[in-house]
Nucleic acid binder design. Sequence first.
DNA 1: AGATATTTGTTCGTATGTATT
DNA 2: TAATACATACGAACAAATATC
Lengths: 268, 268
Amino acid sequence: MTQTISPTPPIRRKRTDEIVDAIKRTIIEHGLQPGDRLPQERELMEQFAASKGTIREALKALEVQGLIGIRTGPGGGAFIETMSEQRAMSLLSNYLFAKALSISDIYALRKVLEPLVAVSAMRSIDERGYQRLNDIIAIYDHEPADARERWDQRMAELDFHAVVAEYSDNALLAFICRFLQRLLKDLAICRDIYIQPKPVARQEGIQYQRQLIAAMRSGDAETVHAIMARHMAYAEQAMLGLQAELTGDFIHDPVARGRGEKRRKIAP
Amino acid sequence: MTQTISPTPPIRRKRTDEIVDAIKRTIIEHGLQPGDRLPQERELMEQFAASKGTIREALKALEVQGLIGIRTGPGGGAFIETMSEQRAMSLLSNYLFAKALSISDIYALRKVLEPLVAVSAMRSIDERGYQRLNDIIAIYDHEPADARERWDQRMAELDFHAVVAEYSDNALLAFICRFLQRLLKDLAICRDIYIQPKPVARQEGIQYQRQLIAAMRSGDAETVHAIMARHMAYAEQAMLGLQAELTGDFIHDPVARGRGEKRRKIAP
DNA sequence: AGATATTTGTTCGTATGTATT
DNA sequence: TAATACATACGAACAAATATC
């Protein structure tokens, strides 16, 4: 008898996954903080009685999940890390890639969340923040000279809202708002729209944003909320309008339109 | 001179990461769909002139990102997969783990999103869906017999909203709502609250949910929205109240309270 | 600045496990 | 049952990166 019969042996998990889970548990149990070191490969090989390759696969898995980073050289090894916002968004995009999101899907969320994040940002934004917002507006307060500048202006318009979100004290709300902005940058149909040499209602967007800054300065939460809500509603209509021109048909039944564009996928 | 000087040679990327990106690109370029096969290890070793271990690390990275699955045996190998919702939430939790979310942070989102998702679900839910909702309510329409049942009831209350979200046609909105519910299941402070033998306003919650079902049946979007909004506002207050009892202090200044609980982390 | 020690990164060869036929 | 085809795992060696002296 080379092995005792345990109560639940049927599921033969892969060695690598066992080690990944074991390391995760030790991270939790020991309350390891960013910067703390994990044992190096050599020690892990002994600790888990596994080969170098197996340990490295496990560490790779943890690295991709954003839990650790690995450094070479003396004193090197695996270190606890906090996942970057960029990586989190990238992983989430992989999931939503297959979900065929539409412009309406995204704006359904932006219409209610951007007003919230603006109000919460109002409480902690400072003069430096207002300066940054005005600097961004300056990027698109004039006609673009070429296609490249037109594209940069579209991206900057979204960056405006990213900066607003930065000043929110609700990390979850801010993250989701910034993720929605990223989706608008990556969504295939949006890229098609941005490339078009159409005048994309620049003036109206800037007007809303200047009003927004004024309302934030005066600390008027209700007005901030209302302006951002109108801004988003207008932006959605503008996007849908441009999309309709692109695809050739026009908006008669908003619901039918919403379904019609479901096929569009997120670009990598 | 053993090496020509190229314009951008300084960043010496690791072989594994190069292979990961290369495989990602081929997936995109070839438009590979879930179920499609990638070349097997042997072929990849030749294609990238890399060893088995390096290829395996690359495949492991892709597996963790939810892009591929790997099967052994004849006809096995790496197959394109769509990431499961569970994995997506797990990866996202890793990111938010370090962000110290509060109950108020989460409910700020739920208060505006759950009403939206309920309205969109109303359009496509069927009799089977209503049946499922009623079945869930039956789990907590009575006093719990023991601690275990009390816990199950708390979880079922959240599952009610998960089922509602299932019927939404906005995959993004539905995902975020379900993720918020998962956060409430995992957040350390919430678990402390659920464990408490306090009567958690069961009756009021059920009342809202029965009203909600009735409004959905009658197709009254405005009422559905309003009921869910009130339901969420009430649920937040109930949670904050129980939290106050737990931590010993009481709510005088909501803002100060919100900040005070920022320290609580998400449990793994 | 250069040599050196330490640690990860990569390779090769081989053996074992597992699912299909 | 046996043969086959594939992933999974092991071990020893070498290559590359990096901190330290």
